[in-house]
Design a protein around this nucleic acid. Structure first.
Lengths: 165, 165
DNA sequence: ATTGAAATAAAAGACTA
DNA sequence: TAGTCTTTTATTTCAAT
């Protein structure tokens, strides 16, 4: 099911779809230099093998009334694997938590939280996140503004930065 | 150009496209309960007014060989607005920096950095980020794994959590 | 595995209500 | 502003190389 290796065209397809997920297949095919049918087959294969996990419209949070974005650093009392998994499962059911990453070092998790306003965020923090089982510490940092929001991964780098030339 | 107010159908459209950005207009129209042409007109209006900023394929970073995701907390020497903007402009030209948020408090910026491997990240950190003008401090936290990655904003919440009922 | 052509389906536009 | 009809364009399948 999973393709063994991606060739250069596959990577170009991923790069283009990462930038413009609604590009038509004929445009995509033209840009990567093959005809439409094989291009579509490659896209389907990339989807089925999991290299493409989904497609999403990027919305303007502020314009839609979500004016509060906060990063929360969460420390847990127990770092047993089952407790880490339980915490992840819990945040998966918290709509305001948009991203959750497990970190090394002192802090156990970093969460990206999006709320309509300060009241909504405060209610979430004091009634849902802080009182959650096993949560030992929560430190929050409010975002002032977003300076860059690039999707996904940095294709188009030198695969290995040449060390000496 | 910008629509004055979004009605319930517009919000449903945004919610659906945020979850599945390649849904066909016919499917979308059916799900929100209107016919295809007005649905497409709404989508175009949402795009042109900036509520929809773009569409992106979500790719599997690890499967594609990007095994290092790091959050970096960056403090600047000068927080004059022109210097803040200059830093944002600089990270916009760093492909490994995928997101940049300005924060309140001690730390000035949080960056999400994606690299293929530790060597690539270390090279970036020591040769590009730390030596950049005005950078006073950089603290990095490596991610162990991703527990949740939801796109965009939490539609489908009670618009105001009822305070008493 | 790609191409080129045919069939199907969706998107875009004109018009009506 | 929504809906119906029509045209255009894209997607998908299939035969052939």
């Amino acid at each position: 099911m999973t393709k063994v290796k991606l060739d250069d065209i596959d990577v170009q397809i991923l790069d283009h779809l990462q930038s413009d997920g609604r590009m038509t297949n004929v445009d995509l095919a033209r840009k990567v230099g093959i005809s439409a049918p094989p291009c579509l087959r490659r896209v389907r294969a990339l989807e089925e093998s999991g290299y493409i996990k989904g497609y999403h419209a990027e919305v303007d949070a502020e314009a839609l009334g979500f004016e509060v974005t906060v990063f929360a650093m969460v420390g847990l009392a127990s770092q047993a694997e089952s407790d880490l998994v339980a915490f992840e499962e819990r945040v998966r059911n918290m709509p305001l938590v948009r991203e959750c990453w497990m970190l090394n070092g002192e802090i156990d998790f970093i969460l990206k939280i999006v709320a309509r306003d300060l009241a909504e965020f405060q209610g979430f923090l004091t009634r849902e996140l802080t009182p959650a089982p096993n949560v030992a510490s929560v430190k929050t940092s409010f975002t002032i503004r977003n300076g860059k929001h690039a999707p996904g991964v940095p294709f188009g780098l030198p695969p290995r930065p040449a060390r000496a030339r």
